[in-house]
């Protein structure tokens, strides 16, 4: 029984990591209708900035806030400079641009900071919390909490603020929005900025676990896509829940289904997604896209 609970707890911890990056993916998709393949590398790059600030002597939370601000401006700038020229191009062009961005950010980070992995501090206590024979990492719990706070803020933002509502309108119906006086171009840029900000939070919560190096988001991005697909690309809450589900399922199947073991864990996660896509293409919590023709 202990092993079962411990595997679930550890699955929730990893799932929280997937969910936090999935949240950033969903965020940008909702705000701009783009699936951003460079999301992981943007988060990684922001984390390096945070690392630089912390090493310069800033207290953790000051560096945290400063990184969020820089990430927001950086995301905004990327949209203005890189994405805007191809805004109306076919989907494939945008995908290629995003992948290009991924490679560039990865190489620049390696060039500037080297590929040696670095420890990244956690704001939470190091000592694990022990209940019976089950250990909860304090950082894992804290990170999950932070992800939920981000999720809640996004919900409030998109639901109750003028800017949030304007952004949703701009993504869903650009023409009508423009007629209402919403500056659609800028709304898209703000969407990228916010996604970069959410990604930066994810990066700073992930780095203490997987350590900071330019490739730290590589594997995680695949799982984040899986989580977002499972939960639904249009549902922030679904993305986080999707992450948790993927994390727990992969651990339990790896532990208890002998012929799958640890070798086919990733395959299981992907199989789950395939099934979801066949049965419910918009994800567990996503809305089916309806277009008037």
């Amino acid at each position: 029984m202990d092993i079962f609970v411990q595997q679930v707890v550890s699955g929730l911890a990893t799932g929280g990591i997937y969910g936090s990056l999935a949240l950033a993916l969903v965020m940008i998709y909702q705000a701009t209708d783009v699936v951003n393949y460079a999301q992981g590398e943007m988060a990684m790059f922001s984390t390096y900035l945070a690392w630089t600030l912390i090493n310069a002597g800033l207290p953790y939370w000051v560096a945290f806030a400063a990184t969020l601000a820089i990430a927001f401006v950086g995301g905004l700038a990327i949209e203005r400079v890189v994405i805007r020229p191809v805004e109306n191009a076919p989907v494939l062009t945008i995908v290629i641009v995003c992948i290009g961005l991924l490679v560039i950010l990865n190489s620049v980070a390696g060039w500037v900071y080297s590929y040696i992995q670095k420890p990244f501090p956690s704001p939470f206590p190091e000592k694990p919390i022990r209940i019976g024979n089950v250990f909860f990492g304090a950082h894992d719990l804290g990170a999950l909490g932070v992800t939920l706070v981000v999720l809640l803020s996004l919900y409030v933002f998109f639901r109750y603020t003028t800017l949030g509502l304007a952004m949703r309108a701009a993504a869903q119906n650009p023409v009508s929005s423009r007629l209402c006086g919403i500056r659609v171009g800028w709304m898209l840029a703000v969407g990228w900025g916010l996604a970069a900000l959410v990604g930066a939070v994810a990066g700073m919560m992930v780095a203490p676990v997987v350590f900071l190096d330019p490739n730290m988001m590589g594997g995680i991005l695949i799982y984040a896509f899986a989580s977002a697909t499972l939960g639904g690309f249009t549902s922030p809450g679904g993305a986080v829940l999707g992450g948790l589900i993927v994390g727990v399922i992969e651990n339990l199947v790896g532990t208890y289904v002998r012929f799958i073991g640890t070798e086919l864990k990733l395959t299981v996660a992907l199989a789950v997604i395939l099934v979801v896509l066949i049965v419910k293409p918009s994800g567990l919590f996503g809305r089916a896209a309806v277009h008037r023709v």
Partner: peptide, 20 residues
């Protein structure tokens, strides 16, 4: 014996099994 792939983000699950 536990294995991991280089695409795995973490190996927490394997360590839990080994301890157990």
């Amino acid at each position: 014996e536990q294995t991991y792939e280089t695409s795995d983000p973490t190996i927490d699950s394997q360590i839990v099994n080994l301890k157990n």
